[in-house]
């Protein structure tokens, strides 16, 4: 059985991300230097269109970087085989699978595909991992329901359970709270905290929930005007970076209440 390495060494240096076009590449962000070496809850925040999702997708290996170095545990991204990479990072994306007849259990079981044989047969340890994932996300009682019949919040939990079943040290989530109300968003963040603290995962997510991120994330990566500020959440807040980036004529960030308020 593959025990996840709890210690990970995640480094990017001078990474440049964006979209290659025929004539010249469209650079979204450049000179990105990130480093993670212990289980943390990391929130990538920034205004619409600054490149949060592009950064996450690049780090998740779903699109190639334009240039620079990106290594996990001393090995460059391009040196990983697809399967090795799939055992390092699991993802939860905004596009939720639709139009299928899978049950919740089958959906979560997809996480084990990285480890199963060509007939996708489950060993005892596979079944254990699936059960664990269902229990951690509190969807065990849904396991025989059809995925298509669930609510948005439940589906999101199933997709997170699928990522958990993939048994990777790193989980990356693109806007995991986007369709959820404040109650469910809070629940998600608490779940992410638990994954970091109890299950030693590194969780990296993009979000527009600045308030929740400031209160619950360990580290913030704030993207603004082509630059990334990375630091412990406390430092970011104390250095007034949140205010610099997000304050407008209408709202401002209050450091005492850790929330936005109308001017």
């Amino acid at each position: 059985m593959n025990q996840p390495a709890t210690h990970i060494d995640f480094q990017t240096s001078h990474l440049s991300i964006g979209y290659p076009t025929r004539k010249e590449s469209l650079e979204v962000l450049s000179d990105i230097n990130l480093s993670v070496n212990q289980p943390e809850l990391i929130a990538i925040i920034g205004k619409n269109g600054v490149g949060k999702s592009t950064l996450l997708r690049t780090l998740a290996g779903l699109q190639p970087a334009l240039s620079g170095s990106y290594a996990i545990n001393g090995k460059q991204r391009h040196s990983y085989t697809p399967l090795q990479w799939a055992q390092m990072i699991a993802v939860v994306l905004t596009e939720v699978p639709q139009h299928n007849d899978f049950t919740v259990y089958e959906m979560v079981a997809f996480g084990r595909q990285t480890y199963t044989n060509w007939l996708d047969q489950h060993t005892i340890s596979d079944k254990k991992k699936i059960q664990e994932a269902l229990e951690i996300t509190h969807i065990w009682e849904l396991s025989q329901k059809r995925f298509a019949e669930l609510s948005d919040g439940q589906r999101q939990k199933v997709m997170i359970a699928r990522a958990l079943a993939q048994d990777t040290p790193i989980i990356m989530l693109d806007e995991p709270t986007v369709h959820l109300d404040i109650h469910h968003s809070m629940e998600m963040f608490v779940l992410f905290q638990k994954l970091v603290q109890k299950h030693q995962k590194t969780v990296i997510l993009t979000t527009h929930e600045i308030g929740l991120s400031v209160k619950l994330a360990d580290v913030l990566w704030v993207i603004d005007q082509g630059k990334i500020f990375t630091d412990k959440t406390q430092q970011i807040v104390q250095n007034q970076i949140i205010s610099q980036v997000f304050d407008t004529d209408l709202i401002r960030f209050n450091i005492k209440t850790m929330n936005f308020e109308y001017r």
Binding site: G61, L62, P82, W85, A86, A90, V91, N100, G111
Partner: peptide, 11 residues
């Protein structure tokens, strides 16, 4: 069936 991105992320 889960989409190309997720399939890719699963190896």
């Amino acid at each position: 069936l889960l989409g190309e991105n997720l399939a890719q992320s699963m190896g």
